[in-house]
Design a protein around this nucleic acid. Structure first.
Lengths: 346, 346
DNA sequence: TTGAAAGCGCTAACAA
DNA sequence: TTGTTAGCGCTTTCAA
């Protein structure tokens, strides 16, 4: 076990001072070409690598940014990470990923442990529990300490910071219109409980589209899946709700789900019932994931462009870190959704 | 923008020395109860948080471990991360995630940037390109610098370090046997190219099961998907191969795929052909993901227990970091696979 | 052209 | 019981 060489060791070997070595390695003109070359050659030979911790301490900057996401097992978030990674790497920043598990406490803990020196800024999507509690003190604190925060997707409206969101209202509207235009009259909407901003916005878009097309919205067609259910229970819940719905409204002919799981579960329900997709019912999912694509028939989906969201978030954050945009100049970028038409719609 | 308070500032305010503050905050008995309480109260009021960078520099340990995975958009890897996270958090370690994108250069770069102080050890799955090149110098170097490495799933056999692998041979064998026992005679096997260790091992298990059941293996039934194809091309490739296969062997009645994408694509092919699953053909996927579960009919799958792999890896690494296991004592843990029976097999 | 010294925030051995 | 000092690895100002 040979430890990494330090400036000190090199200095000792070469019988020069530490500062000379430091300067030489940064190719400072102050040092004679001769010494510089000698030192550089030696450093290379001993595979010298500057200690990044020491650099961070010294420079008050670690050149790394932290991502805090609610869940790691989530295709949308992984896409966002991919986007952040690519932009950050391009601009020589490292990326650290932490997971809040949708828990308020873990979100706070993550920020607290990271905020002290190890990272220069945050890109995060707010944990569900935090939204529910509406307790945002940890965001205010980090921002007031001069550590910039960028929120994406799930954001806290009252917190002043850069944000990258998708146009959920518009996305849901486009999806609903697509169904209406292809002849659907009774469109089911499966969403989350009210406190999740995203679900709400999508519901709003659905409503708007109905209104504008003079279709009277019917609350019975809106299924709100309880937050605390696990995946088996979700299936059971959705199957039950649809079963009931089908009894009262045997003529439902369209369905939109605010995430891929709800939607695919619904699609499977109809497959089981031998109700043809899209002939008898058209289906659209909100999703950036693989489920709709590999489903049979494949599902038309509203893509959230996770990668672009990630890239935009990283750009916003790094621009701020490097002083390209002034500190108190907060922007909210809206990334357009895209309707990817597949085989579940006419 | 108020910066975080430091020991020095507290010391100054309270007119004591820095070391007194340091000791008081760690509740050192050396300091009188009186002073301790005063200092602690003050620190709390000013929301003092130790600077983790300074601590790392001082302690030569950051209490964090780095995960390097080939891809972030991969359900298996995210499950593993989840497992690592939970074990690491339990033992008060932070987790940093970096992505190699299956590129040799990026893997090397990641390790180099992280190895210098910011992390105490690595948990990684080897990038495809690295396996192809069989260039493992970066692993040797980090290990020889005293930074422990744990490899999971995709591992470099010749590198001496802790490893957590799944019993791929056994998993494939179980899957094949399941099909044989349910009456399948002609089982297709869709795998990767030869240099991917995992694909190879699974193929071996398939072969073994056939042999032990006196079924003569037929190379034409083995489809090797080229590595460089994108997802659309993979679909095209698999569809073509199966089409051809069906002409020569209209009596194929079983199929195993080494990952969820290959398998689900094959399943979709049969759905398109109106060949009934599982009546006419039984299907099993290797997968930890959601695709098989939400497929219709749902697909029987060999689960790799990603979460457990993650937990075991973290345990191995942290035990080494804390000196619980001796440095040069390398273990290879084998995590059993599990056949999750669903609706695509009889 | 080179080097000494201070300092980033913290801890710990030793001195007072 | 409290404080002084040195040091983790690095950069940078100022002096030689």
């Amino acid at each position: 076990m040979k430890k990494n060489v330090t400036l000190k060791q090199i200095a000792k070997e070469l019988e020069v001072s530490v500062s000379t070595v430091s300067k030489a390695l940064r190719d400072n003109e102050e040092i004679s070409l001769d010494t510089r070359q000698k030192i550089q050659a030696f450093a290379k030979m001993y595979n010298y690598k500057p200690n990044s911790i020491a650099l961070s301490l010294r420079n008050k900057s670690s050149k790394s940014i932290a991502i805090i996401i609610p869940q790691i097992v989530n295709h949308f978030f992984t896409k966002v990470i991919q986007g952040i990674e690519s932009e950050a790497n391009r601009r020589n920043y490292n990326v650290i990923i932490a997971v809040s598990n949708d828990s308020f406490d873990k979100e706070v803990l993550n920020m607290e442990t990271l905020v002290n020196g190890s990272i220069d800024g945050f890109i995060l999507s707010v944990a569900k529990e935090t939204m529910k509690k509406a307790d945002y003190h940890h965001f205010y604190e980090t921002i007031s300490q001069g550590v910039p925060v960028v929120m994406f997707d799930r954001e806290a409206a009252e917190v002043n910071c850069d944000k990258v969101i998708i146009d959920d209202v518009e996305g849901a509207k486009k999806a609903t219109e697509k169904l209406i235009n292809s002849g659907c009259k009774k469109i089911v909407f499966i969403t989350t409980e009210d406190f999740v901003s995203v679900g709400n916005l999508r519901l709003k878009g659905y409503m708007e589209a109905l209104n504008e097309n003079k279709i009277i919205a019917n609350n019975s067609l809106i299924i709100k899946v309880k937050d605390e259910l696990n995946s088996d229970e979700i299936e059971e819940f959705i199957f039950n709700e649809l079963e009931k719905l089908l009894e009262t409204f045997p003529d439902i002919d369209g369905l939109i789900g605010v995430n891929e799981f709800y939607t695919i579960t619904a699609a499977n329900f109809f497959k089981k019932k031998s109700i043809q997709i899209p002939e008898e019912i058209s289906i659209i999912a909100f999703s950036d994931g693989d489920l709709p694509k590999y489903s049979y028939p494949s599902l038309t989906a509203v893509s959230q462009h996770g990668r672009q969201i990630g890239e935009a978030s990283a750009r916003l954050l790094i621009d701020k870190l490097e002083g390209i945009t002034p500190e108190e100049n907060y922007q909210t970028l809206v990334i357009e959704t895209e309707l990817i038409e597949r085989d579940s719609t006419k």
